[in-house]
Design a protein around this nucleic acid. Structure first.
Lengths: 216, 216
DNA sequence: GCCCTGGTAATGTGATCACGAACCGGGCAT
DNA sequence: ATGCCCGGTTCGTGATCACATTACCAGGGC
């Protein structure tokens, strides 16, 4: 019973919840209960608690007043910070991926960007966020920099719910133009242009978010 | 019994272990057992397990083959990555702290740097690492950027054991010169010089580490 | 009508137990 | 002598139970 399918139950629950949070499937401010998670996955409280604990350590969940945990409602200041982190780390990842990027990867990125545009046309917020993350993730995997990528992913995890919830205000604003610019820079091998395209893409994503919740 | 001192037992254990790991008091490669931790702190397995889980989520502990956890032995490549992260994020924090740095803070930093030099003279590895971290932490606290600071601290957490273990090879190499340069830049308010001093300090710390363990 | 107070339900915390897997040792067969 | 098997020990995993704390709501007093 300890290892039913492939890995431990707490790890399975952690991965599922993490993916759901990163893709914005759980609204900000939504409170999660350990007993509720345990019941949903058909397990006891123990593995559910450990999954919640790990998510809390990554900043995906914030402790409430009474030990409860919720998907955090990010303040404008915090969003700006997270955007600054993305603007610093992601161009670095792109720069490291560039020398290793072959044609197959570039074609794959173009495909993902097409999915991205399609979701954008269909006003599919979750689909857009998912495809956008896949685009960046696919590129950064080539950087062979797991430590940096892990850090960036924790930032995505914190931004995911808010980005998805605020999708409306950034939709249609040339969402995929920066992606195309990055793909073009990959083809020509121009690292400076690539880094700038990624930086612009990242800050554009966040400009729509930053400020509109400045009060809290 | 639920709240012995001030907070939950698992949180207390987490904080103590995290501090010990960050300051290099636990050697890399050292394996920790949940039962051992529970026995050491006089609690049951449950809170010990949660503390280990949180530390694992922050990268302070890595899972072994059989689910056991150890303080990670960083590869040369990973050290280079973590150094790159520090070189990107810490100048940003210093730049944000500069406009808010008053004379009291600068004096405090000078005091901490004196402690740093003293530990360096006495070949006190743990003391040097601790004072060095306190120097950076004190400066970055003024940046009012908790999200970035939290990320940088997880990097310190991962680097702590290796930095402390490899202290010998970087001792005496003008360890505190960059600190003095940063303090001078704070006095004159020159942001570019401050950022460069921090960047040089961070990369200097890691140059001694990078490469000597490149094999693993 | 409003606020305070008491009780009940819900939830987190932690201990204990049972189970399974991995590691380590000695003993036996070849 | 060496390789293999088999037993015990150690440890992580997960379930269950007991307890403290907190939130929520209803009822009564001012």
């Amino acid at each position: 019973m300890t290892v039913p399918a492939n890995r431990a139950a707490h790890d399975r629950i952690f991965r599922i919840l993490r993916s759901e949070i990163m893709q914005g499937e759980i609204a900000p401010g939504c409170a999660l209960t350990i007993r509720g998670i345990a019941e949903r996955f058909g397990v006891s409280m123990t593995p559910a608690r450990e999954a919640v604990r790990r998510l809390g350590a990554e900043g995906a969940l914030t402790p409430n007043k009474a030990g409860r945990v919720t998907v955090p409602q990010l303040s404008g200041r915090r969003i700006e910070e997270l955007a600054a982190i993305r603007a610093l780390l992601e161009p670095e990842l792109a720069g490291r991926a560039r020398p290793r990027a072959h044609m197959a990867l570039i074609k794959r990125l173009a495909q993902i960007n097409a999915t991205c545009e399609q979701a954008n046309v269909q006003n599919d917020a979750a689909g857009y966020v998912r495809a956008n993350l896949e685009f960046h993730h696919t590129l950064y995997l080539r950087a062979q920099a797991p430590a940096i990528l892990a850090l960036v992913e924790t930032v995505w995890l914190q931004l995911g719910p808010t980005m998805c919830a605020s999708y409306a205000r950034l939709q249609g604003a040339g969402a995929t133009a920066h992606h195309r610019k990055a793909i073009a820079a990959l083809k020509t091998g121009d690292e400076a242009v690539l880094k700038e395209a990624i930086r612009a893409d990242v800050t554009r994503d966040l400009h729509g978010l930053d400020g509109h919740r400045a009060g809290f």
